[in-house]
């Protein structure tokens, strides 16, 4: 039973992802783009969950790793013919680089991991509010470095002509990979030790668990997955500015995690699909859609207002999130013991 349930905890959510993608392929091109973007956003949220969900420590800095992954992948794979003229101050090594799709995604993961490990060494000593503020500071620093250091970043310009390789296949497979790694980690001895520190850091130490080390492992893994998701993101968009991987994305992805339920991968996925799906739907409504004989055209601002209200209602009525922070339960027979 335990083993079957363990398989189901990954298989169930994966089936949902495949179903969403499959339905997505049958829709109009604009909706298709929205669905692929929902899948990539879900990958970001699951990567965030790996650290926040298992450690119980909040991170407002995770989009930093998405950003370094996105720009590493984007800059390394944009065509070498155009980069030196568009970005005259860029290091020649970067300007002349042009790597393939798989290398680009792996590079994004690697850069995310290294960066997270490096900032994690001091950061992981903090908990609670100070962790929140310090991770947020990392986000601000990262943003400003990428935006202003033109030797390695695009500056205030748009990084364009990134090969748009994140189609349905890569978005889906990419998300499934992130989920499988997240779930594998959660069930590993490292993930379990980190969960113990989340429940009670003092008692965990009495059992020989080194809080800093376990958090740093999760932070690094989470940074790798966030970087990878950033790679998927830049190859989805094809062109990107530093603003697209900054405050809005931070707020939205954290909100998704909280609404879905911080404590489980299922929660991260459901929150992402629910909010991102709703968001995509409202985006289309704001643009105006024809419903039968009438055209429905919501005033702009409705989208954020509606999202805000829904998050508010969910959190007030279900503070633990839509899933209550639990993994997907077995659909047929549920064993209960008290």
């Amino acid at each position: 039973m335990r083993r079957r349930l363990a398989v189901w905890h990954l298989l169930g959510p994966s089936l949902l992802v495949v179903a969403v993608a499959a339905v997505g392929t049958t829709t109009s091109p604009t909706i298709q783009f929205q669905v692929r973007s929902v899948l990539v956003t879900a990958a970001i949220v699951v990567s965030l969950y790996v650290f926040v969900g298992n450690s119980g420590v909040i991170s407002f800095g995770h989009v930093s790793f998405v950003a370094v992954g996105a720009f590493a992948a984007g800059i390394a794979s944009a065509p070498a013919e155009v980069k030196p003229s568009t970005f005259p101050k860029m290091l020649p090594f970067l300007a002349n680089l042009e790597i393939g799709n798989v290398e680009s995604l792996l590079l994004a993961a690697l850069v995310g991991a290294i960066y997270a490990f490096w900032v994690g060494i001091p950061l992981m000593r903090l908990s609670g509010l100070s962790a929140g503020i310090a991770t947020f500071a990392v986000l601000i620093i990262t943003h400003n470095v990428i935006r202003n250091w033109e030797a390695i970043g695009p500056g205030a310009k748009t990084l364009a002509l990134v090969p748009p390789t994140t189609g349905f296949l890569q978005a889906t497979v990419g998300l499934l990979i992130v989920m499988a790694i997240a779930y594998g980690y959660q069930r590993s001895r490292w993930g379990r030790r980190l969960r113990a520190t989340r429940e009670d850091p003092l008692a965990a130490q009495a059992s020989g668990i080194e809080v800093h080390r376990e958090r740093l492992i999760a932070f690094t893994l989470s940074g790798a997955l966030a970087g990878f998701a950033g790679g998927l993101f830049v190859h989805l968009l094809g062109s990107i500015t530093t603003e697209q991987v900054f405050l809005d994305l931070t707020f939205v992805t954290l909100a998704m995690l909280v609404v879905g339920g911080i404590g489980s991968m299922w929660g991260a996925l459901i929150g992402a699909l629910f909010i991102a799906g709703l968001n995509a739907f409202l985006v289309e409504l704001e643009k105006g859609v024809v419903l039968g004989a009438r055209e429905l055209d919501l005033p702009s601002g409705t989208r954020l207002l509606t999202l805000g209200v829904i998050m508010f209602v969910v959190l007030v009525t279900r503070p633990e999130g839509l899933t209550g922070g639990r993994e997907l339960s077995w659909p047929i027979r549920r064993r209960r013991r008290v």
């Binding site: 030790r193 969960r195 113990a196 429940e199 009670d200 965990a204 020989g208 404590g263």
Partner: peptide
Amino acid sequence: HAFGGLSVRENIEVSALG
């Protein structure tokens, strides 16, 4: 100081893993 959100079994197992 129990690991409140973990089951009894998980509480014990994670102490050994620690």
